[in-house]
Design a protein around this nucleic acid. Structure first.
Lengths: 190, 190
DNA sequence: TTCTTGTTCCTAGCGACGCTAGATTTTGGA
DNA sequence: TCCAAAATCTAGCGTCGCTAGGAACAAGAA
């Protein structure tokens, strides 16, 4: 009995190890450096072990992405803090979102580009995902007026994501990034 | 003299053929089906001829993307037409943008996701790219107020791109797509 | 018309990828 | 101590982007 418990514990540890090594490798060298061979080598197991934990490479990327969503949600929560002014709260959370994307480009990639198959706008979506979206909802509520809060949160999210992803892809010059963000917020918030 | 001209003409034809076959293959079967082998087979040449035209596969994708930018710019231009009302013009152009992304997902992917190395926010950027951005500028000018027109055009672009790409990735439910778009426009345009 | 020279193009193959079948080692219990 | 089962590895499949080196071809000279 206890011995099986130990085995399960070890398996869970190894699974966490795989995910964190994948994440670290992606964050330091980019996703193109994350191959099943390299990953297996760093985890100090052979390739097939990866497939006893995850259905395929995509599933590993997905696991990393879920970590990313949790981190992002936490960052946004912290940024909102106990800010009184709705405008300030909005600005802080938006800035946190953008900063997260800039500081963790590979993670952000996994969350929004790499991956297509994570359940999202459904109840089965990871909790961290709902938590992150809730932050946007909170911060948007005071400025929604007659508009639907959920919809406005989604629109804000779209604006932030668009800004971030066009900038990261070189589509927008990095130069006026701050001004664009400020303009987006000022327009969205009236 | 004339014979070399013929050769150059044939080379140019073949290059166009490669790009259009790549585009067709991508649009019908997705980019993961566009391999250099399959492409070469459909063009009825061997793989290495691709590399005598393009530096690598990325360059072929880039060529397809440039076609995409031209098409998108044309669609937006047509949508604006001679619309009188600034609001209507904005709505039409935005709808055209979104429709293009929905009708040509693979093309849109090449333009905004697949590719990182196209020169963008610089003078060397393909003309079609400037043309497309100009459309946004035109349509945004009347609603800019005291704000910088270029910046507002970029913000609008970000919003549209965010909406499109989150929806396409399953991050936003397709259901209220229209309402989100309307909300984005109403917020941005005051 | 035949030969030579330079270009064009293809065959074959390299290293790396994600993934898996089957052999081998390790493990815990009889 | 031995055995069955579980865990793990070795080896390899098919595919990828890309390229070296040779074969086939065309154009000008003899």
């Amino acid at each position: 009995m206890s011995i099986q418990a130990r085995r399960e514990r070890e398996r869970a540890d190894r699974e966490r190890l795989i995910v964190s090594v994948a994440r670290e490798l992606a964050e330091t060298e980019g996703w193109e450096a994350v191959t099943t061979r390299r990953l297996a080598e760093r985890v100090e197991y052979s390739q097939p072990v990866l497939y006893s934990h995850f259905k395929g490479k995509d599933a590993i990327v997905a696991a990393v992405a879920v970590e990313g969503f949790a981190d992002l949600a936490a960052k946004m929560r912290a940024a909102r803090g106990s800010t009184r002014s709705p405008q300030k709260a909005l600005a802080n959370v938006a800035a946190a979102y953008v900063a997260f994307a800039e500081q963790h480009p590979a993670l952000y990639d996994a969350m929004f580009n790499q991956l297509v198959s994570l359940p999202f706008a459904t109840p089965e979506a990871p909790a961290a995902l709902h938590a992150g979206f809730d932050e946007l909802r909170q911060v948007v509520r005071p400025i929604a007026g007659d508009d639907n809060v959920d919809l406005l949160a989604e629109v804000l999210w779209s604006g932030l994501h668009g800004l971030v992803s066009l900038t990261r892809g070189g589509r927008l010059p990095r130069q006026d990034h701050e001004r664009r963000l400020a303009l987006l917020l000022s327009r969205v918030s009236r």
